[in-house]
């Protein structure tokens, strides 16, 4: 089935995010730290009157921190809570068909939990990911 996908850069890779999981795309302002929370919780940010939990997607994937801090984020809502998942860049929104991962492809450990399939963009395969699995505290039921 054809779905609308958001093509974004996370940790230097191009990924596709199902637009149904995306509420909006914003630039995050000042972030209030949450001491002693898990490493991928960057903190809290205000999005108009709403408080969102900012998730460092690189840390959530267990990848090394790239030096610079992303400000752009994808807002998603999971079980009544809003999360801002930091992305390096947003490239495109377009309809794609979700294809299963080719047989035998072993994803990198970091991406294995979150990969859901592949979309083909101009002949180039792009990993479609599930945002829920990137959010700490929800990983268990998503994986």
């Amino acid at each position: 089935m054809t779905h609308l996908y958001l093509i974004a850069q996370i940790a230097g890779r191009t990924v596709a995010i199902d637009s149904e999981q995306v509420e909006s795309v914003v630039d995050i302002g000042e972030v209030t730290a949450v001491p002693r929370a898990a490493g991928h919780v960057r903190g809290l940010a205000a999005l108009r009157s709403r408080v969102v939990t900012v998730v460092d997607t690189q840390a959530a994937l267990g990848l090394e921190q790239a030096g610079q801090v992303a400000r752009r984020a994808v807002i998603t809502q999971i079980e009544g809570h809003h999360y801002a998942l930091l992305v390096d860049a947003l490239e495109d929104v377009a309809p794609f068909d979700l294809l299963p991962l080719s047989a035998g492809v072993a994803l990198d450990a970091a991406w294995r939990a979150t990969g859901r399939g592949i979309v083909e963009r101009d002949g180039e395969p792009v990993l479609a990911i599930d945002l829920v699995s990137l959010v700490p505290g929800h990983t268990a039921q998503a994986a």
Binding site: V34, A37, L44, T53, V55, G137
Partner: peptide
Amino acid sequence: KPASPAVMSTGLYAGQTL
């Protein structure tokens, strides 16, 4: 308001406010 599970799981916070 209640904070997200990732924040509440620290056991240190009762909620968040703006």
